[in-house]
Amino acid sequence: TDCSIVSFLARLGCSSCLDYFTTQGLTTIYQIEHYSMDDLASLKIPEQFRHAIWKGILDHRQLHEF
């Protein structure tokens, strides 16, 4: 599957948040998979999107835990 942040955000309906990640040089889900809610806040992601992205990260982690 596509591991880009572009497609990750698109699946979550949060494509408008892409610039918050790319300006930090973040391009793949693996770069953010251990981010906390505070990390997302420090990227200045608007609160209404933060929870959806956080949930997406948690779902991603569960899929990749062996």
Rank of each mutant, 00 (worst) to 15 (best):
T1R: 04
T1H: 03
T1F: 11
T1G: 12
T1E: 12
D2L: 03
C3A: 06
S4W: 04
S4P: 04
S4Q: 07
S4G: 06
I5W: 00
I5C: 01
I5N: 00
I5M: 12
V6Y: 06
V6E: 08
S7H: 08
S7M: 06
S7E: 12
S7F: 07
S7L: 05
F8V: 04
F8N: 01
F8Q: 01
F8A: 02
L9P: 00
L9H: 00
L9V: 02
A10F: 04
A10I: 04
A10N: 05
R11I: 05
R11Y: 04
R11H: 05
R11P: 05
L12F: 05
L12W: 08
L12V: 10
L12Y: 10
G13D: 15
G13R: 07
C14K: 05
C14E: 03
S15M: 08
S15C: 09
S15Q: 15
S15A: 10
S15Y: 06
S16N: 10
S16A: 11
C17I: 05
C17G: 02
L18M: 14
L18N: 10
L18I: 11
D19W: 09
Y20K: 12
Y20M: 12
Y20C: 07
Y20N: 12
Y20T: 08
F21T: 00
F21E: 00
F21W: 00
F21C: 00
F21D: 00
F21S: 01
T22Q: 12
T22D: 11
T22Y: 04
T22S: 11
T22V: 11
T22N: 08
T23V: 10
T23H: 15
Q24N: 07
Q24L: 07
G25P: 01
G25M: 03
L26K: 05
L26V: 09
L26S: 02
L26Q: 03
T27Y: 07
T28G: 08
T28V: 06
T28P: 01
T28Y: 09
T28C: 04
I29A: 04
I29P: 03
Y30N: 10
Y30D: 15
Y30K: 14
Y30E: 13
Y30W: 09
Y30C: 15
Q31A: 06
Q31D: 13
Q31K: 03
I32P: 00
I32T: 02
I32H: 01
E33Y: 06
E33S: 09
E33C: 10
E33R: 10
H34R: 12
H34M: 10
H34S: 14
H34C: 05
Y35L: 10
S36H: 05
S36E: 13
M37H: 11
M37K: 11
M37F: 14
M37I: 07
M37Q: 08
D38H: 04
D38P: 06
D38V: 15
D39R: 04
L40C: 02
L40K: 00
L40F: 10
L40H: 01
L40S: 01
L40M: 05
A41R: 11
S42L: 14
S42Q: 14
L43I: 11
L43K: 03
K44E: 14
K44Q: 13
K44L: 08
I45P: 01
P46Y: 00
P46C: 02
P46K: 03
P46Q: 03
P46R: 02
E47A: 13
E47K: 13
E47G: 15
E47V: 13
Q48C: 08
Q48R: 13
F49H: 14
F49W: 09
F49A: 11
F49T: 05
R50S: 06
R50Q: 08
H51A: 12
H51N: 15
H51L: 11
H51Y: 08
A52P: 10
A52C: 13
I53P: 00
I53V: 07
I53S: 00
I53Q: 00
W54F: 06
W54L: 15
K55H: 06
K55W: 04
K55L: 09
G56W: 01
G56V: 02
G56D: 02
G56N: 03
G56H: 03
G56R: 02
I57G: 01
I57H: 01
I57S: 02
I57K: 02
L58Q: 14
D59S: 10
D59H: 12
D59C: 09
H60C: 14
H60F: 14
H60D: 05
R61V: 08
R61Q: 11
R61Y: 04
Q62D: 11
Q62A: 13
L63M: 15
L63N: 10
L63E: 15
L63F: 06
H64E: 15
H64N: 14
H64K: 13
E65D: 15
E65T: 10
E65K: 14
E65F: 05
F66M: 15
F66K: 04
F66P: 15
